[in-house]
Amino acid sequence: MPDPVRLAIIGLGMATKPHLLALEELRGRVEVSGVLNRNRAKAEAVGAEHGWRVFDDLAAVAADPGTDGVIVATPPDQRREIVSAMAAGGKPVLMEKPVERTLAAARAIVAECADAGVPLGIVFQHRFRAGARRLRELVDGGRLGELALVRATVPWWRDQAYYDQPGRGTLARDGGGVLISQAIHVLDLMLSLTGPAASVQAMRATTRMHAMETEDFVAAGLRFASGAVGSVV
């Protein structure tokens, strides 16, 4: 059996729990080389629970010969600094969505990894589920006919307590609201099946159901490069 891949975890927020469960399932194939978090006490608690090293800073992770790559599960406003350090250290990056808060910043991250020859992956897991992969085969093979109409609906709910957490749904930390934080998964799954959109017309709003800086409602009409049309709500 080949040696396990050794990954460091950077960020221990809400998105970390699924990664910890996956890492447990991959035990023997993947090992955790250590953790890093802005809240040192939280990192030490998680490290003590699992028997993992706690890194002092990004430079320590980037320079660690016992780390083959990193999982980045921080809020979006911390991504650029982290990726820059890992790219400089030659560490492949698997990062939670979204890439960053703005298109320009996201492109800069992608370019920095490409220039350094460092693999960069974003966690869009739904397109890799068995059902999604089979549907992609059927669509690509023409088994369902020519794609004409697409409808994507995101009914997921977040209560006010979710947005009352510091930074949630703000432009400064998250870069937006429901579209970039929750609906992004459905959008990725949709585009993996439909191909790229050629044009989009949309509206966004903050409804009376939430008190927050950014949107909790989005509706869009799309025309895809294939000629199909669709909607997202």
Results as ranks from 00 to 15, higher is better:
Asp115Thr: 13
Gly176Asp: 06
Asp164Tyr: 09
Ser181Pro: 00
Glu146Asn: 01
Ala205Ile: 00
Pro119Thr: 12
Gln201Val: 12
Arg143Cys: 07
Thr170Val: 11
Ala197Asp: 07
Gly117Ala: 04
Tyr162His: 02
Asp216Arg: 03
Met209His: 07
Gly145Pro: 10
Leu94Ile: 13
Ala172Val: 13
Leu138Cys: 02
Arg134Gly: 11
Ala132Arg: 06
Val123Lys: 00
Arg136Pro: 05
Arg158Ser: 01
Thr214Asp: 05
Ser181Val: 00
Gly145Phe: 12
Phe217Trp: 05
Leu149Tyr: 15
Asp140Thr: 06
Pro155Arg: 11
Gly141Ile: 15
Gly169Arg: 07
Met190Trp: 02
Arg168Val: 05
Ala152Asp: 11
Arg107Cys: 08
Asp188Pro: 01
Thr194Val: 14
Met212Lys: 06
Asp174Val: 09
Thr214Lys: 14
Thr102Cys: 02
Pro119Gln: 12
Val118Ala: 06
Ala106Thr: 08
Gln125Met: 06
Ile184Glu: 04
Lys97Arg: 03
Gly142Leu: 13
Ala172Tyr: 10
Cys113Phe: 01
Pro98Trp: 02
Cys113Tyr: 01
Arg208His: 11
Ala172Thr: 05
Glu146Thr: 15
Ala172His: 13
Ala108Gln: 15
Thr214Val: 03
Gly169Thr: 08
Leu147Ile: 06
Glu96Arg: 09
Ala111Tyr: 10
Arg168Leu: 08
Ala152Val: 15
Gly121Met: 04
Ser181Met: 10
Met190Ser: 14
Ser192Met: 07
Ile184Trp: 02
Arg127Asn: 08
Val110Pro: 01
Arg168Cys: 07
Ile180Tyr: 01
Gly145Leu: 12
Gln165Cys: 00
Ala108Met: 06
